[in-house]
Simulated assay, not measured.
Amino acid sequence: MDNIELNNPTKTKRFQRYQLEAALIRHFPNSPQEHASTIIEKSLARDWTKQTSMTKAISIVVHNYIRHNLTDYEKLLTRSGITRDEARIIVKPEVDDWFEYWHAGTDALKPSSG
């Protein structure tokens, strides 16, 4: 292999389960256990570019998981006239609050549901 192939961001990699579990615990200590297995499975199923760090990968999946499962994002998509981008903008503050809470640890204030 030459350097061009090694630096090609289109080449993919996958992480190991134990690595992702450790990253989730380390970077998202407030993430509820009942969500962990789904987040890990989604992370395992995805091909990541060689340049994607494990922290970035788990963060992307956590962010997407929160948006789709802990907000009204899916309901908004069923409304006539609301695009994906508009729905993302609407739920962004709630996604950010949950993400920060899961990431911050025990001193963070839990977002209100609703």
Results as ranks from 00 to 15, higher is better:
residue 79 R to D: 01
residue 91 V to P: 04
residue 27 H to P: 06
residue 15 F to S: 00
residue 108 A to S: 14
residue 98 W to E: 05
residue 73 Y to D: 01
residue 65 Y to C: 09
residue 70 L to N: 08
residue 99 F to G: 04
residue 90 I to N: 04
residue 18 Y to V: 06
residue 83 T to Q: 04
residue 109 L to F: 09
residue 16 Q to S: 03
residue 30 N to I: 02
residue 67 R to C: 08
residue 31 S to C: 15
residue 40 I to E: 04
residue 72 D to Y: 00
residue 72 D to I: 00
residue 97 D to A: 15
residue 32 P to K: 01
residue 110 K to W: 02
residue 61 V to G: 07
residue 84 R to F: 12
residue 53 S to L: 10
residue 27 H to E: 15
residue 101 Y to P: 05
residue 80 S to Y: 03
residue 29 P to T: 07
residue 90 I to R: 09
residue 52 T to H: 11
residue 50 K to G: 02
residue 10 T to E: 10
residue 26 R to Q: 13
residue 30 N to T: 06
residue 52 T to K: 14
residue 34 E to V: 07
residue 1 M to C: 02
residue 99 F to S: 00
residue 90 I to Y: 06
residue 88 R to V: 13
residue 101 Y to E: 10
residue 25 I to G: 06
residue 2 D to T: 10
residue 82 I to N: 00
residue 7 N to Q: 08
residue 107 D to N: 15
residue 8 N to P: 08
residue 87 A to M: 01
residue 93 P to L: 12
residue 9 P to Q: 10
residue 63 H to Q: 03
residue 39 I to R: 12
residue 37 S to H: 10
residue 73 Y to G: 01
residue 109 L to I: 13
residue 45 A to Q: 15
residue 76 L to S: 00
residue 8 N to K: 10
residue 93 P to G: 05
residue 79 R to A: 01
residue 32 P to M: 04
residue 114 G to D: 01
residue 11 K to H: 13
residue 29 P to V: 03
residue 71 T to W: 03
residue 40 I to N: 12
residue 49 T to L: 02
residue 51 Q to K: 09
residue 101 Y to A: 01
residue 96 D to L: 14
residue 111 P to F: 11
residue 37 S to W: 05
residue 6 L to M: 10
residue 38 T to E: 15
residue 99 F to A: 08
residue 69 N to G: 00
residue 16 Q to R: 07
residue 62 V to Q: 11
residue 36 A to C: 09
residue 112 S to T: 12
residue 12 T to H: 07
residue 68 H to P: 00
residue 12 T to Q: 12
residue 14 R to G: 04
residue 18 Y to N: 11
residue 93 P to M: 03
residue 43 S to R: 07
residue 67 R to I: 08
residue 28 F to W: 11
residue 57 A to Q: 11
residue 85 D to R: 15
residue 58 I to C: 09
residue 97 D to Q: 14
residue 82 I to D: 02
residue 114 G to F: 03
residue 106 T to G: 07
residue 6 L to G: 05
residue 18 Y to E: 10
residue 114 G to E: 02
residue 113 S to V: 08
residue 42 K to C: 02
residue 90 I to L: 09
residue 27 H to V: 06
residue 65 Y to T: 01
residue 80 S to D: 08
residue 4 I to M: 11
residue 63 H to A: 05
residue 21 E to T: 07
residue 98 W to F: 14
residue 42 K to V: 02
residue 72 D to Q: 01
residue 106 T to M: 13
residue 21 E to S: 08
residue 40 I to F: 13
residue 102 W to R: 02
residue 57 A to I: 12
residue 40 I to C: 14
residue 84 R to G: 07
residue 35 H to W: 05
residue 88 R to M: 14
residue 75 K to H: 03
residue 108 A to R: 13
residue 13 K to F: 00
residue 11 K to A: 08
residue 86 E to H: 08
residue 44 L to R: 10
residue 25 I to S: 13
residue 58 I to W: 09
residue 63 H to K: 14
